[in-house]
Design a protein around this nucleic acid. Structure first.
Lengths: 147, 147
DNA sequence: CCCATTGGTCAAGCTGCTTGACTTTTTGAT
DNA sequence: ATCAAAAAGTCAAGCAGCTTGACCAATGGG
């Protein structure tokens, strides 16, 4: 049976999985053991500029309710804060606490380590090419947990 | 805040997500609208050689019970069959039915179309390099739904 | 000025996975 | 040959994380 093309897809998924697992494991080892991979996307979005619940939801491709629950959890655990939006009485702005910033840093460092391993295997130039290529074929849209 | 490395990880995830979504959408459009992406991994494993429940579970990184349920569902929907293993009275071999083979073909063709689009964007050579590189950094292990 | 839209929450429900307990068959060490 | 331990699979129950549905408060275009 010719499943070569599926196999190609599988390689991309395996690489993604390797990254997610690696970042998760290292972040936990760094003391943030109450975080799940999905939380990383919240942090990533907030780090790119404060955001409201609806923006987070859109960014992750989930419902507002789900995003709200995630923020609840992160808030309970001390990683983010909900603040009223001075410009819009309905909206609330989600901000990283100091702990949230620390966790983001840890995750980023974990990612750096993993990409560093890629460089050891492939060489710096090949990694550059790889990421450039992926950037051009990856859809811009939602960034949600895959399935 | 320096989250560049996280951003690199995000690109890989986005590419993976694009593939999964694309394959899922095309496979559904081809008439297999009662399949979820996770089912693809069952098919991929079986297509690579008949397998038992435990092997499927290990391959997907889930418990035997979860794998058993998946096979239940696929069996109910007519994609696979459970057959007793002649060599081991405990084991059961999971095989693709004709419909299962057809679905696998549809998924493979969908993957081929998507990779074809990549070739249009990047060129055939770059796609080859890309997949070769990913193959060398992707961990061999589990192939499960990412989170 | 009003009403459709938007941001957000509360509540309930469901799906897909997990842990736990069990049966049957195989393996392997004595 | 025997018997304990391991492995394949299933049944049952529970739970986490998401969904749909209903709702309130604030906004803003006509």
């Amino acid at each position: 049976m010719e499943t070569e093309n599926l196999a190609l897809a599988v390689v991309v998924l395996a690489a993604a999985r390797g990254l997610v697992d690696g970042i998760d494991a290292r972040t936990r080892a760094a003391g943030f053991d109450d975080l799940r991979p999905a939380h990383g996307f919240v942090f990533a979005r907030i780090a790119a500029g404060d955001a409201g619940i609806s923006e987070l939801a859109a960014h992750m491709g989930v419902t507002k309710q789900a995003a709200s629950q995630l923020v609840d959890e992160l808030s309970r655990k001390g990683y983010v804060r909900r603040e009223p939006d001075p410009r819009d009485g309905r909206a609330k702005i989600v901000t990283l606490t100091a702990r949230g910033v620390a966790a983001t840093r840890a995750a980023d460092q974990a990612a750096a380590e993993l990409v560093g391993q890629w460089r050891q295997t492939l060489g710096a130039e090949a990694v550059g090419t790889l990421l450039d290529s992926l950037g051009r074929v990856a859809p811009a849209g939602r960034l949600r947990p895959i399935w």
